[in-house]
Design a protein around this nucleic acid. Structure first.
Lengths: 219, 219
DNA sequence: ATAAATATTTAGTTTAGACTAAATATTAGT
DNA sequence: ACTAATATTTAGTCTAAACTAAATATTTAT
């Protein structure tokens, strides 16, 4: 597999998640910042290799093998992102470009050892789930903490209310972007929530919860 | 710079160290496992880019810029090797192939942070010195510990006597391949040496020293 | 239902990096 | 010094991945 082939599979995988029909040539060209004619060429090659299904003018969809390969690349990308943030102290937004390169390093052994070294993280720094070694994967979506079910959780990725008062509250409560938050309990009377953050439990009001976005896998 | 260009510069740098004349087309082809005609093509390109000096039929030598670039790649390679061994517990001999890929990742920031994360190592796991960020580099050579000057040191890379008795001694003394050894003192009377290994000082006889190879930079 | 707009594919070029075979330079042996 | 052996370069081909321009399919709008 070449870098370019891997990038196409990744792009097609992501596009196939949102729109549920076959992925169009133009959509791929847009996503990859290339020309439709180049996409046609590559799509033919990937089709011959059995990585995707392609009928002229009808768009493409990944084969089982294509999905497996795409997930393997996404897994590498996200594990490297965790490494860059956790171990090398890069910030959230600096890591994407470097991970785009690292994801193509060929060594299963390497990525599995890195995974172990990082304590088998479940999410990358942007809150997106990391596919498992054997290709398990559930997509995540950004939602308000009020919409998350009991015992479910995800990564804090943003706030709705960005007032100084709210941000100060978060700071004081030691809740930061990138933290994993899990819902422990929900009080029916006022909708307040008990959550676990960084191995610490605390109660927050439903007003607070309604202003915190987290990325969490679908039910 | 492409991966291939970087690999050529690295190969030419290494060849230029041992033989001191210009490096021949065939030598490069051998080193890179490619054909002489391919080398001629690449050498022309690198010459046009100002990375090396080339006169038809006369071989090549790196320009200042070429040396700088080669050292930057070698630095990356060796720092990644340290990471793989120290942090991911790969063994000595498993790391080369993976580092061959990692050395081409483009990010100065990444390599400098990794260097810091590893505590600014001076040697890679094979005992070869790591070029500094600003291109300082002294080659190292394998020699017996008896030939090393006071206060100098290097990485233990092999034994001359591989008898069970000697290996048992090393094991008991907690001296292993890959350890850094520094000569602290030398007793003129019997040639015995005080050495520092893993922050531990101990005395060894000249017989022991005469059977230990270390890699150390030239005087 | 047909013309216009849009999407996709085909055909032919380009660049990087490799290759083979043939041509030319250099070096070595007598 | 001249021929034989070896080294190097040139010329032309190949593959991957891009591109442009032209051709063809599909979709949309009237």
């Amino acid at each position: 597999m070449t870098h370019s082939e891997e990038n196409y599979l990744k792009a097609i995988f992501h596009l196939g998640r949102t729109r549920s029909e076959a992925v169009s040539t133009n959509a791929i060209a847009d996503e990859m910042d290339t020309k439709p004619s180049s996409v046609t060429d590559m799509v033919k090659k990937l089709s011959e290799k059995g990585l995707l299904h392609y009928k002229k003018y009808q768009g493409v969809s990944l084969s089982r093998m294509g999905v497996r390969t795409a997930l393997s690349v996404i897994r590498k990308h996200r594990i490297w992102e965790v490494f860059l943030v956790e171990k090398l102290n890069f910030s959230w937004d600096e890591v994407h470009e470097i991970a785009e390169q690292l994801e193509h390093i060929k060594s299963e052994e390497l990525i599995n050892r890195l995974d172990e070294h990082l304590g088998f993280p479940k999410y990358d720094p942007h809150g997106d789930p990391i596919p498992t070694r054997d290709g398990e994967y559930k997509a995540s979506h950004k939602r308000l903490l009020t919409e998350v079910a009991l015992n479910k959780g995800g990564i804090c990725v943003g706030v709705k209310d960005s007032s100084a008062a709210f941000l100060k509250f978060l700071d004081k409560s030691k809740i930061a972007l990138g933290d994993e938050i899990i819902i422990i309990d929900r009080e029916e009377f006022d909708g307040s929530l008990e959550i676990k953050v960084k191995n610490r439990k605390l109660w927050i009001s439903s007003e607070i919860a309604a202003n915190l976005f987290i990325k969490t896998v679908d039910a």
